[in-house]
Amino acid sequence: MTSSSEKIKVAILGSGNIGTDLLIKVLRSPYLECTLFIGRNMSSGGMHKASSLGVRTSDQSIEAIVNDPDCCDIVFDATSAIDHKRHWAVLDGLGKTVIDMTPAKIGAICVPAINLDDCLIERNVNMITCGGQASLPMAYAIARTHPDVHYIEVVSSIASRSAGPATRLNIDEYVDTTSSALQYFSGCEKTKAILIINPANPCIDMQTTIFAKVEQANIEALRLEVDAMVRIIQSYVPGYQIILPPTLENNRIVIMVKVLGLGDYLPRYAGNLDIINCAAIAFAEKYAKLRYDQLRITNHESRITNCFSIIRNSWEGVDKCQKF
């Protein structure tokens, strides 16, 4: 399926770092086609990038979709948590499937390495946060190997250059959403998330540290579980790597990961953009494949039905149905 008529149409709402990086990933996808790239200001860097790539753009924000509801099946909302609440009310009414890139905490929370298939039936899928995408699979691995997890804490450091205005404005939502998702996936009630923005030049690579307090640490089992999890994550985030394997230090389990991005919109240090966007693309592509298969089955069935009626009407029809 490479012809553009068969690709699933997506619109990207939000022309900041996340939205623009997503656009480049969508353009590369054999399953997705970006039919509209939407911002609020035609002169922003993201809008220029989109125009230069030959993508249709609009500065009409959510109105662009309201005015042309058939432009897409999927909407990526890469605006801010506050705006997403308003956008969802509109997009829900239009029957769109929405992939929420903000920490608005409305939709089903999705980490592809853990629960991709469960989310495919959802209409609003939340990609949590960049730190969440990096840490939750590790927290899940800790929970799977330790029956009594007392506490989980994750700390992410990102380069200042990679944190756009919405990320900064949403720092409370980041903390809150990441820590709720930690509870959800680890089953541990006491969780904490911390975000650090570092302005060093050259920019620092995105890093995340996962700490846990458990009843009885089983580092050997955890290392195996983590290795298996890393292989799954690397299938959609190639730059995900462990820099400190599960270690017991000062009565706490510590795991450190680094995420190097694909260098699509921002350079490779911006693994935070990459991991959340790769997660969103993994979901969108799986959704697209499913839709495509359904469509093919439906088409196939209707053609068979059609064929039977031809057969019933005349035997000559059999020739016409040979290709089935």
């Binding site: 700390v155 911390i194 570092n198 302005p199 620092i204 890093q207 540290t209 510590v254 450190m256």
Partner: peptide, 17 residues
Amino acid sequence: LRKVVAGQEDLILEVAA
């Protein structure tokens, strides 16, 4: 050298290791 800021105490472990 890594220009760490307040709150990046986790890096101590990485650097020491």
